[in-house]
Each structure stands twice: as structure tokens, then as C-alpha cells.
């Protein structure tokens, strides 16, 4: 078992002929992901890598294929429209990799999502992967191994750091999700915590947060009130200065709010097992699972 994606998930790639889109679509196919179609405006009726049919619009693609999920590589200026196209086409899962979408655009996307049949991951994220089954994103596949820990993160390479340790320590992963580094994202930590709690194969969840906003605090309240499985937490940015955007648009301490110490305090109080630095994430999982 896993959450959201598995070996039967039919995937569409929006922006499949672009530089990033084509590179990563190919990597996903190599990993075993069922990429059934691609979309790029004015590239309809062509084939991607001699095998995947490309359409001009999602509407065209949907006539020919059953689509469970879409991976969005559309450039920032058009990405919000691309996501709304997917929402209108009622694609169940939207994974938006694109970085740099304006906040105002994401506010509109978010309100469209709220009254739709779609679930969104990202934007500005590495995507989602169910180990050995399905990769929808840009993460290196080889570090993942089927196992028992779920991983959630606002970051990219820092997630790989955690996954690598979990694999090497023999725990392995069920599903790993990069939820996105922007201030407004499709789905918060809580949505996934709920799914992991219900997934029979997930025994523990690693949650990697960072400065900015209050998503980790809200997630930890949820953990305290609704979860039996242990959650292991890490927060990046203890040394980050206030008022500076630390790479991710959402990683900013503003008006004294969103500091690492505030988050860690609340998380600890709510029973999250804290890893003091990223090198001890697997070790902290071990302590939390008591095996």
C-alpha cells in the first residue's frame, strides 16, 4: 500500500516537450511510471520519444486516455492556467513542479481547487514517489526503497537526505511527498498526515519543515489530536535571519512570525519526535519506533 500513487497510476505530463519536462518525463518512464500522454500547445499529434502521444490540450488527451494524475512542468507565467486546465478536466491528482508562480495566481488556483474534484501537490516541489512503483517528479529514484516510513517535506534535496538515510538504515519508504516551498500550496502537511495514518503499510512519518508560516504548528496539533503513528520532525532555518527570503518563496520570517524555535517548541509540545540535525533523522525514527 501507499498513498495517492501506485504502479497503476496513469500519468499525463503537461509541458512534456520542454527542456525540464522532457528530461524528467523520460526519467519517470525509466523508473516505471505509466506515462500515458503529454500536453504541449501546438505539438498535438506528435510522439514524445517515439512512444508517448502528445496533445494540444488536456481535453484532447482525455478523449483518448484514462488519466489519474498530471505532472505540471509549465513555465511560471502560464503554470496557474495549466493547473486550472487540469482542475476543469477533473484530473484527480495534480503535481505541480514549477517554481516561481506569483502568489496572487496561486490564491486563485487555491480557491478553484476548493470547489473541485482535484487534489494538488506543490507548486515549487520535487513531486511524489511511491518507492519501486511510481515516480511523479524530479527526485532521484534510486535512493528510494519500498519500506515503512512516509516522508513529507517543504524542500527538495533535504528530502533526499532523509530518504537516503531511511533506505540505508533499512527502514525504506512507503510514499514520499514534496509539498512545496511556496507560501500558498495546493495541500498542507495535514492532508497527507491523514492519509499516512490510514495507510496500513506506513508505520511512521518524517515531516521536514522550514521557517515561514505556521503549517508545521497546525500539523503538530493534528498529530496530537488524531494520530497514533509516530511523527518525526525537523525544521530547517534556525540560523536564518528575519525578513530574508531563504531560497524558497515561503521560507521567510516576517513580523517575527515563522521562526524555527517557535515551530520546534510547538511540535515538541505536541509529541513530535524532533531530529536536531538532518544527519540524525534515521536515528530519530529508530528511537520513535523503539526498534
Amino acid at each position: 500500500m501507499s498513498i495517492l500513487v501506485n504502479k497503476n497510476t496513469n500519468v499525463l505530463v503537461q509541458g512534456i516537450t520542454g527542456k525540464e519536462g522532457s528530461f524528467h518525463a523520460q526519467k519517470c518512464i525509466e523508473y516505471g511510471t505509466k506515462v500515458v500522454a503529454g500536453v504541449t500547445p501546438f505539438k498535438g499529434k506528435t510522439l514524445f520519444n517515439d512512444s508517448v502521444p502528445v496533445y494540444n490540450t488536456i481535453k484532447e488527451a482525455k478523449k483518448e486516455h484514462k488519466i489519474d494524475a498530471t505532472m505540471v512542468f509549465v513555465p511560471a507565467g502560464f503554470a496557474a492556467a495549466g493547473v486550472i486546465e487540469a482542475i476543469e478536466a477533473e484530473i484527480p491528482l495534480i503535481v505541480c513542479i514549477t517554481e516561481g508562480i506569483p502568489v496572487v495566481d496561486m490564491l486563485n488556483v487555491k480557491s478553484a481547487l476548493n470547489c473541485s474534484k482535484s487534489f494538488m501537490i506543490g507548486p515549487n516541489c520535487p513531486g511524489i514517489i511511491t518507492a519501486d512503483e511510481c515516480k511523479i517528479g524530479i527526485m532521484p529514484g534510486f535512493i528510494h526503497k519500498k519500506g515503512r516510513v512516509g516522508v513529507l517535506s517543504r524542500s527538495g534535496t533535504l528530502t533526499y537526505e532523509a530518504v537516503n538515510q531511511l533506505t540505508k538504515a533499512g527502514y525504506g519508504e512507503t510514499t514520499c511527498v514534496g509539498i512545496g516551498g511556496d507560501p500558498i500550496i495546493g495541500s498542507p502537511f495535514i492532508s497527507f498526515l491523514k492519509m499516512f495514518e490510514q495507510d496500513p503499510e506506513t508505520d511512521a512519518v518524517v515531516m521536514i519543515g522550514e521557517i515561514g508560516g505556521t503549517a508545521e504548528e497546525e500539523a503538530s496539533e493534528y498529530v496530537k489530536n488524531h494520530m497514533k503513528k509516530p511523527v518525526i520532525g525537523f525544521i530547517a532555518g534556525k540560523t536564518a535571519p528575519a525578513g530574508k527570503r531563504m531560497g524558497h518563496a515561503g521560507a521567510i520570517i516576517s513580523g517575527g512570525k515563522g521562526t524555527a524555535s517557535d515551530k520546534l517548541k510547538t511540535m515538541e509540545k505536541n509529541g513530535i519526535h524532533i531530529a536536531d540535525n538532518p544527519s540524525v533523522i534515521a536515528e530519530t525514527v529508530k528511537k520513535a519506533l523503539k526498534i
Binding site: 517535506s153 531563504m246 538532518p278
Partner: peptide
């Protein structure tokens, strides 16, 4: 010098934890 914003922040934090101080954030 780090790749990725989250890892860059975590690197700064860990340097501090081991008694030195980071001169910068760089992704």
C-alpha cells in the same frame, strides 16, 4: 556552498550546532 534551499539552511544550522557560524546561505 549547497544545492537546494532547504539543505542550504540545514547546513547553516548544523555548522552552528558544531560551534562555528555560517558566513552565508548559498543555493
Amino acid at each position: 556552498m549547497v544545492n537546494g534551499a532547504g539543505l542550504a539552511m540545514a547546513t547553516m544550522d548544523t555548522i552552528k550546532e558544531f560551534g562555528a557560524a555560517p558566513a552565508n546561505f548559498l543555493d
